[in-house]
Amino acid sequence: MSIDIALYDGHPAGGRRTGARMLRLSSPGAALDDALARHTDPARHRLGRIDPYGDTLFDERDAGAVFEEATALLARCTTEEQRAAVRELRDLLADCAATPGSRLVFLGD
């Protein structure tokens, strides 16, 4: 299992005549899956609600709010692979938060 992350300039389901454009795609691999599963609680963390088997969507406001969770998650990571994956996640969250109208989509298996 592995979650890919796509950053779009709008809602990926379309909504506009031209549809949303993908700005960036990341495949942080199993290390992100492991970090999320081991170090987040779905009852307390929005990051813990990312579905590893389906798609989860954050808009730019969600991404800004979740950035602090990702920073705390980084401190709880136990391997360099997890830390690298969470740093990539933080970069994508920051890009999404800084891009009005954007969406970050977590693409589960």
Rank of each mutant, 00 (worst) to 15 (best):
D109E: 10
A31T: 09
I5K: 02
A84L: 09
A97K: 04
R87N: 10
F58A: 02
S26F: 06
I5Q: 03
P28Q: 12
A31Q: 05
A37T: 08
L57K: 12
S27N: 07
D33K: 14
A94W: 01
D4G: 05
E80L: 13
R44M: 10
D4T: 08
G29W: 05
R17W: 08
P52Y: 14
A37V: 01
L57H: 14
A43W: 00
D9E: 05
S26Q: 09
A37S: 13
H11V: 12
D91H: 11
P28R: 07
R38V: 00
A20T: 00
R24A: 14
A85F: 07
G10T: 02
R16C: 04
D55Y: 04
R16F: 07
D91S: 13
S27Q: 11
V86K: 03
R24S: 11
P42T: 08
P12V: 13
A98M: 10
T40R: 14
T18R: 13
G14E: 08
P12F: 14
H39E: 06
L73D: 05
E88D: 14
A31I: 05
I5N: 00
S26D: 09
A72S: 09
G19I: 03
T56K: 13
V105P: 01
L57T: 08
F106I: 04
L89N: 09
D34I: 03
I50Y: 01
V66Y: 01
A94D: 04
R17S: 05
D109K: 13
G101R: 15
D9S: 09
E68I: 02
D55Q: 14
T99H: 14
P42D: 08
F67A: 12
L74I: 00
D109N: 09
T56A: 14
P12T: 14
L74H: 11
A84P: 01
L7S: 01
D51V: 04
L104K: 06
D41L: 10
D91P: 00
D41W: 05
R90W: 01
T71V: 11
T40D: 10
G10R: 10
G48H: 09
R38W: 04
L57P: 00
D109G: 06
E80A: 15
L107R: 14
D41T: 09
L107T: 06
M22H: 04
L23I: 11
T18D: 12
R103W: 07
I50T: 01
H11S: 06
D33N: 15
A72L: 07
F58D: 00
G14C: 06
M1W: 05
P12Q: 15
A84D: 11
H45D: 15
F58P: 00
M1G: 08
D4A: 13
L107M: 11
G19C: 08
L7A: 06
F106C: 06
F58K: 09
L25K: 12
L89G: 06
T71D: 13
E81F: 04
S102F: 04
I50N: 02
R83P: 03
D55S: 14
D59N: 14
I5T: 03
L89R: 07
G48I: 03
